[in-house]
Amino acid sequence: MQSYLDFEKPVADLEGKIAELKSLASTDQAVSIEEEVNRLSARAEEALADIYKKLTPWQKTQVARHPQRPHFSDYVKSLITEWVPLAGDRKFGEDAALLAGFGRFEGQSVAILGQEKGSNTEERLRHNFGMARPEGYRKAVRLMDMADRFNIPVVAFVDTAGAYPGIGAEERGQAEAIARSTEKCLELGVPNLAIIIGEGGSGGAIAIATANRVLMMENAIYSVISPEAGASILWRDAAKAQDAANNMKITASDLLGFGVIDGIISEPVGGAHRHHDQVMDATRRAIGKFLSDYSGKSRLELREQRREKFLSIGTNLA
């Protein structure tokens, strides 16, 4: 069942009418509804295109968090064959918020990591809503180390509100785990790609998003703090999340302008949650292009390109 965001109301109304007509027609064969349905469908499509053409940052935030938006596991299912998930940081535990493993992308060996938010209540709890603990980041480090040794490219799907703020996480060194994961990204002698598929939340995101190429889905957001938390600190009012989102420059096009990301993967009209297949095709092309662009580069070249790219961020802004 399609669920609508509040700003999609005009579309919801039209699609509601269509559904009503269809149910009417199924009970009364005498009524011809085809023409009316076509007319309404066209109008709904138009309305959707109109709305999505001018989404505000706050609306994008809602799209980025849409429960039906493709998550880590959807990407893996569609794009990776022979998926072998690995578990555990070999130090303390396993963290299902950040998944990692090896598989093949169009036949080629790849290492995959990323946060999984889960798509129903049970899954969300199991994956801790995609908020990783130190074990998740240490597992990421372990996996990147392996990928580096076996000379296998790394692809990270980033989707998290942030690293988990809890007693145990602090006790076991959340800050250190994030710092080491970022550091490992910058040491890799193999190509790495990060794709922000939903939310890129602060340190919890950067820990795996420090990559040779960083891409964002068109309606994804990437920020130093969630709009809600930012609002409660800067405006002293969590209800100002909308203002915070609009001020903080968190959309893909803003970040491309700052040189923080290297490219945008277009989403179908109406957002990624409406047409998973199209999103997967676009992502497949982006990963394929990345792998071919970066194949044949030396370990040193790859490392230096990544390091220099990050060092230069922000230095050329007016």
Partner: peptide, 15 residues
């Protein structure tokens, strides 16, 4: 926070 994402980028830059 007033520098948004550019503030976040100081984490990899300093690293």
């Amino acid at each position: 926070m007033q520098e948004g994402i550019l503030s976040l980028m100081q984490m990899p830059r300093t690293t």
